[in-house]
Design a binder for these strands. Structure first.
Lengths: 345, 345
DNA sequence: CTTAGCACTCGGATCAAGTGAGTGCCAGGG
DNA sequence: CCCTGGCACTCACTTGATCCGAGTGCTAAG
């Protein structure tokens, strides 16, 4: 276990290194912080910290730099989370308040987040498992295809085309089918609706012409698919330009990071694993992301709830980032989003 | 005007420089190409090319590098466009063939394009000005808000919420309004439908209760807005990771490029201006993009038609790119997309 | 018009010496 | 027992000098 003051020294090192991007030496610490001790004492503490692999020196004789482990201890011992300035808060409120549909909300959220943190911002779309089916529509858009439109709670719309080969569907037939499906599903939540559709399909022969059963089955399959198509697997991203900021952070790993952003699957899994403990905001630092090839990046994520289910949002940036500030910002944005999606409903 | 052989020398320089990333000297040219002349002669030609500002030397005494102007002349005098290999062609066909809806088609297209060219690929969504309104739906999703869903040709869906403050809309009222709007607009193309809605609004008092006129106006405004919301202003992007490829191309301008990709507005304008001449595929090189801050990038774009309107797609990359290959690939993909969207309809 | 020869230029690599920030350690003092 | 001042040491980085060679422009001859 590290002593009280050693921990303070670690905090000083992390803080100074983050803002200066240069290894920090014992002298610099006594200059910039008012520990009541001399540089030699700091050096002793630093020797201890180095023994615990919390800090390291890039070259035999130069200042110290936090290791992954050091950053980890730093965020774990971060005392209070500095709240945002009132200017920032009102900016968030104003900017989010203007948004129209869900896509817009997500886009504005990540944009805001990336601007406030100067990092890449990522947000998972809210889960829809518990949301309610508001409306189902079937539209014939050709002789052999039917478009199914599903409107879910808070205005999310799912659309998909059902191909009905070698058939000639009529408006009336489509309308009747729509009525039946809507009666079964509209008003219930997604899970219940799925079950209802399954029952509908079971005694399909009771209400369909024998030669239409196959067509009806196809349509039902598409609608069920839409219900399953949990939009939770979509994410919004913003601020990729921050990756190329001066400082040359991501020297070699920039392509990997850019790929991860494009391959949303990686990000989804990464955020998915960040359930961690009961804390609302958690961090994953450096090597902890090694499995995804992102061992030079840190991720700060927070869950947010849309009143129905839990989703995540956060930022991704270099190891050397302002953890304290970013944690505060991510948490603040998550809370605003909570509130916003809550009252929207 | 440059002589025949000088032009050949320019082509050699561009070709060698693109593949080697090193200034190319007179000796290298006679080694790698079989001009029937000596290095000294090449040097004379190079002096001419330099006088015309088609090539330049980075340092007083080193090989030559093409200038923007040189690249321009190079692509303008590119003789034949090498067709793609049959393996590539079948890969394109297979990959595009699997796609389901429009979003998927666009995503697969840019992905394919970025992989084949190793550059950033961009594609404008097809224009919808001439497309037909298939279906209009209004759904009350609360006492004071109505969701309008618009289904356009080829299955594109527009959705937007109309806020009706301090009102208590009923299912019946919404249904009646929907009927009236659908009667006016469904079946006509977007422009005609817009006009029809305008007429509907003109004699609004003839068919609405006086106290409802304001509400109806709001709904009409939203629907008209959706009709205007030409999805032509959306783009798909892929391959941002290619920007960070070794070679250190975009030394300082990387942030600018990443920002441009995120700020889709810039790309839209850029591609919009690339109508140029009657050629199907055109290029914009280096300083020609200065107005957008992209003076270190080149863009190769081609128009494609979805049977109804014209849109664009292309790649964006460093000045030093394989113009010949990329032009061929962009053209090929545009043609496949033409065909694909055509038969889809 | 082309070619061979030649002097010249200049970027980049290599090396030596000097500088200074920072360290570890030790002996003395509260 | 912990802190402090002092001191020798390490080593990355800078500067300047030198060298090398690819590549050029020019000129005179074929």
């Amino acid at each position: 276990m590290v002593s009280e003051r050693s921990l303070a020294v670690l905090h000083a090192i992390v803080g100074d290194y983050v803002s200066s991007n240069e290894p920090v030496g014992s002298k610099a610490i006594v200059d910039r912080h008012s520990f009541g001790v001399s540089a030699a004492t700091i050096r002793n503490d630093m020797a201890l910290l180095e023994e615990d692999e919390l800090i390291a020196q890039p070259h035999t004789s130069s200042g110290r730099v936090p290791t992954d482990k050091g950053y980890r201890l730093y965020v774990d011992t971060l005392a209070r989370i500095r709240p945002l300035s009132s200017a920032q808060r009102s900016a968030i409120e104003r900017f989010l308040g203007e948004s129209s549909d869900l896509d817009d909300v997500m886009a504005r959220t990540v944009r805001m987040l990336s601007q406030l943190t100067n990092q890449v911002a990522v947000a998972q779309y809210p889960s829809l498992r518990r949301t309610v089916v508001r409306h189902i529509d079937l539209v014939a858009i050709g002789e052999d295809r039917v478009l199914s439109v599903l409107i879910l709670g808070s205005g999310v719309v799912e659309q998909q085309v059902a191909l009905l080969p070698a058939s000639r569907v009529t408006e009336a037939w489509v309308h009747g089918l729509r009525q039946r499906i809507a009666d079964a599903a509209v008003g219930s939540d997604v899970e219940t609706a799925t079950a209802a559709l399954a029952r509908l399909e079971e005694d399909i022969s009771a209400w369909s012409q024998p030669d239409e059963i196959d067509l009806v089955r196809r349509v039902l399959a598409v609608v069920s698919g839409q219900l399953q198509a949990n939009r939770n697997d979509r994410i919004a991203v913003a601020g990729a330009a921050n990756l190329s900021r001066p400082g040359g952070e991501f020297a070699g790993s920039l392509p990997v990071v850019l790929e991860a952003i494009e391959e949303q699957v990686t990000l989804l899994r990464l955020f998915g694993e960040l359930v961690h403990d009961d804390r609302d905001v958690s961090a994953s630092i450096g090597r902890e992301n090694e499995a995804y090839g992102l061992s030079e990046t840190s991720i700060i994520a927070s869950k947010y709830e849309d009143g129905i289910a839990i989703s995540k949002l956060g930022v991704l940036g270099p190891l050397r980032m302002d953890y304290a500030g970013n944690i505060a910002t991510v948490r603040a944005i998550a809370r605003y989003l909570n509130r916003f999606l809550g009252e929207e409903r």
